[in-house]
Design a protein around this nucleic acid. Sequence first.
DNA 1: ACCGAGTACGAAAGCGCTTCCGAAAGCGCT
DNA 2: AGCGCTTTCGGAAGCGCTTTCGTACTCGGT
Lengths: 342, 342
Amino acid sequence: MPKPGPGLRLIDVAQRAGVSLATASRALSGRDGVSEEVADRVRQVSLEMGYVANPYARTLAGGASSTVGLVVHQVDDPYFSEIAGGVIQLAGEQSLLVQICHSGRDPSQELRQIRSLIAQRVGIIIVAGSGYSDPQVEASSREVLSLYERNGGRLAVIGRHSLSADAVLPDNEAGGFALGEHLIGLGHRNIAIVAGTAALTTVTDRMAGVAAAMRAHGLDPAAMPVLHTDFIREGGRVATEQILRDHPSTTAIIALNDAMAMGVLSALREHDIAVPARMSVVGFDDVSVAADLAPSLTTIRLPMTDMGRMALDLALKPRAARPRRRRTGHQLIVRDSTGPAA
Amino acid sequence: MPKPGPGLRLIDVAQRAGVSLATASRALSGRDGVSEEVADRVRQVSLEMGYVANPYARTLAGGASSTVGLVVHQVDDPYFSEIAGGVIQLAGEQSLLVQICHSGRDPSQELRQIRSLIAQRVGIIIVAGSGYSDPQVEASSREVLSLYERNGGRLAVIGRHSLSADAVLPDNEAGGFALGEHLIGLGHRNIAIVAGTAALTTVTDRMAGVAAAMRAHGLDPAAMPVLHTDFIREGGRVATEQILRDHPSTTAIIALNDAMAMGVLSALREHDIAVPARMSVVGFDDVSVAADLAPSLTTIRLPMTDMGRMALDLALKPRAARPRRRRTGHQLIVRDSTGPAA
DNA sequence: ACCGAGTACGAAAGCGCTTCCGAAAGCGCT
DNA sequence: AGCGCTTTCGGAAGCGCTTTCGTACTCGGT
């Protein structure tokens, strides 16, 4: 492992400015107890010499770490990369650094990553991604995180419910409802859901919204085929094959995220099934390519970049007595992948 | 700024294991001078207590920082997010953490980010993204980076030439050549290039390849319209408008990356110009959505994830006498966006 | 049984910073 | 002039770790 180069030390600056180490430290970190005149001189010298404090020493000595840990499922998934973009953006403005790691959609891996971040003593952790409906897993993850918070760490989660932490929550249920309404309004009655991993709360919430819409229109959600596969493109492909085979009367497919919707479209294309003439397809998230797909995708827009910013913003604020919830807006974007039922 | 919680200290583990601090340190870091028996006991106790070393203390005491800094233009650009995915993947396997920051395609911002990483004493820096053809900018960035390397920092760059650093280089010129050959082979003679930011070496290299292909077939590259805009989707749209207005005889458009190609396709769609019947379009990179576009995009595939891994791999190896170059393969992927010239 | 070489471990010195504490100096007041 | 109070600063003690150095002990050779 390479070793970073040596650097200017605070004592060098202090000597050059003709003050003690302690005074120099106070001057640079803006503590009071230093005359304006001396403080200015120290700052001046420090600037001239291009001094930058060693963050390891600073943190060790009881200062706070200035890096934020970000845990995402997978950074090359557009949903997460946009969230990460937002976090990095705001972090940059606040001159914080971002440690990023993958949980790979695996609860135990996620826990490992969080532990590692805590060990790194990062002061802020942002966990993006769905919660897991497995109570066992959630419990142990919750335990680690709440210990972290009790120790003074700041935590914010994106897109998952958390009892203790501040959270940024897309309105998954309302989004699902809007999708359901849209399709039912177009006359669709045989709607199938490509639902992704069953254990994710994101999935269950979005499904609940769709079910509510169906009930609101006198349809029976229980009759609706629900295909659980992976929450990625390939999952959409696989599920579509099953739908075509087992539920031939289906006229509309709701994929619970855009990645799976892309898989659905690609499978339909292979089977020469016209969209939306013979089958309507909707996604969820509105990742940036959704508009460029063939055909362009009707979906629910979530402000991913903002969600990243909001989460960091929450975490930067002092902790409130009760965990804060920030709900994001959502918007139905109607494009070319949906049309009237055949 | 929140403060990370306290933690178990090495001395706690040492006491519990009945050895001195020094011995415990040696045992856990695998140094020799400790009997197998004692070392085992210490490791056992450490595991039981869930001890994790404080990285700040460790680094301060002369150990090496175990985080790698990654500078990308923008993490929510698929090209960079896939590279980042590769870096994070390998870093995870080596239990390194990744600090990620945006340069936002701005040379001075990039330099600022690098400086900040150096100040953070990260031991490894990976810079992804194109070089800048502005010699002034390149010089000052080169100065900072070579100082960093002289001080023992490890550096690897992706997709840019560097005199001193190890580099992972896609074969931009050969890729450009392959695209040119493909279109010329389909009978296209009036080819326009959507080139993106003129100051990037990636752009100039890819253009050089296309030009070479034209010369090889007796065509004059100088006659070819070259549109310089931003290296993003919107740049492709703007450039396409210009092409349609100023170069109506064009039958094929080469976009020098997929993002711009998506812009080109979207502009053509608005103008109801059939692809590939009336206009062929190619991109470069083969980001994962390229296959799902309308129509699916002919492009040059670059192994982005691998490139990220390779860069970190290079940086982890001890420095060689001469900087190493690792050339990546490339592959022409023919899809539905290209066809014979009208 | 004695000596030099080797091995296993502990004591202690930092790494560069923050912060507590105490000394010195300046002030208004009696 | 003498008192207490505040302000400004320096000395020094850590933060938790790695690493050097020194000491006690073991062992093969004679």
